[in-house]
Design a binder for these strands. Structure first.
Lengths: 206, 206
DNA sequence: CCTTTTATAATACGTTTGTATTTTATACAC
DNA sequence: GTGTATAAAATACAAACGTATTATAAAAGG
């Protein structure tokens, strides 16, 4: 054995190279050779870690979901203790901050959203990727539900806003704002997206 | 000249073949040969109508926007006379019906949405397609704005719902619901999407 | 009727793709 | 220390791609 290398780390490094290329050139730019060059390996090394390109793409998309789910879980937990103390107004601000982190409002999250959009589009034609699309949506909706539960606990939610449709609606709003920001990530559009999210949360108040 | 053929019609027929393939196999399935086979032509004939594949894809995406804009314009105009007569409740129902036509609730519009998602993803990596993405969003938001104006004229809009953010918010909601239905087009998900749209419009009432 | 023009078809070509195969070099076992 | 197993690199190869080129056939003009 030439080097005793952590195979898991290696696979993740390659997946991250896939992300970088996809964010820049789209999924069709992520050829085996391009991915290998992106992380300073030979094509043979990539082939050693992934039997086929399809397996590589599936792993890269799985890792996106996994990382995003972990991050969302962390921010969701972070918001909860924050707001339990004060009035409804501060809870609303905390929830707004948490949900803002789902939107592509900075360069890093814009890249993430571009990668995710590319994979989601690929999932429409590849049944092996479709469950990952659904899982990501479920994760986002879960965060929305937790945010709404937080608001409800703080009395920042009106009576009509508490039904089972509030979380799917909030998820749709966030995803729709993301779609808009992908097409137009200008500062003006970012301001508007933030304002729309703010207004929606305000409209839920009692 | 072998046949005196309407060049515009021919280009549209080829573009429609692109849509059929993209809806089924994604954009990377729309090779010149596959497109030619889809509409019963030879690859040479396709090349005669489109200098390059990039030009073909751009035309196909332009035609999607053009057709969608025309359809949206027509349905928007159709809704207006409907609701001006009755109370706010009937206006709300009419608007709900109009906006429902934007959602992929049947097979035809699901195919349309799949095509649009594929092109939108391609636009992220191809600056020549990006303006078409933005235009489509503007068209949808325009319909949302007209629907809201209709509701306002019929007194079916609360005071806080009338600001400039209502149309962008409604557009985001519709696009977000579309994203969800693309990942999960099951009857249950369709029911929920309709319910979310209904609840959102209800929440705008005075 | 013959020439010309042009849409279509067929073929050819160079490139790039994913992947299989071979070669090389290195770290561990005995 | 030597042999062996394996990661990594290099190379090879068939398939598919976009596109250029050539050939064919059919309608219009004189």
């Amino acid at each position: 054995m030439p080097k005793v290398i952590d195979e898991r780390r290696r696979r993740e490094r390659i997946a991250e190279a896939v992300w970088a290329i996809v964010a820049r050139d789209g999924l069709e730019g992520a050829t085996v050779r391009a991915v290998a060059a992106e992380c300073g390996l030979s094509a043979g090394a990539v082939q050693h870690s992934f039997r086929s390109q399809a397996e590589l793409q599936r792993f890269a998309m799985e890792l996106v979901v996994e990382r995003a789910a972990a991050r969302i879980d962390a921010t969701g937990r972070r918001a909860a203790p924050d707001a339990a103390t004060g009035s409804g107004a501060s809870a609303l601000k905390a929830v707004e901050a948490v949900l803002s982190e789902l939107l592509p409002l900075d360069a890093e999250r814009l890249a993430e959203a571009r990668v995710w959009a590319a994979f989601s589009a690929a999932a429409l034609a590849d049944p092996a990727l479709a469950p990952l699309s659904r899982r990501m949506i479920a994760v986002v909706e879960g965060l929305c539900a937790r945010c709404l539960a937080q608001l409800r606990a703080d009395g920042a939610l009106g009576p009509a806003a508490g039904d089972a449709l509030a979380a799917p609606a909030l998820r749709a709003l966030v995803d729709g704002l993301t779609v808009g920001l992908l097409a137009d990530p200008s500062p003006a559009a970012r301001r508007q997206a933030r304002a729309v999210l703010h207004a929606h949360l305000e409209s839920l108040r009692p």
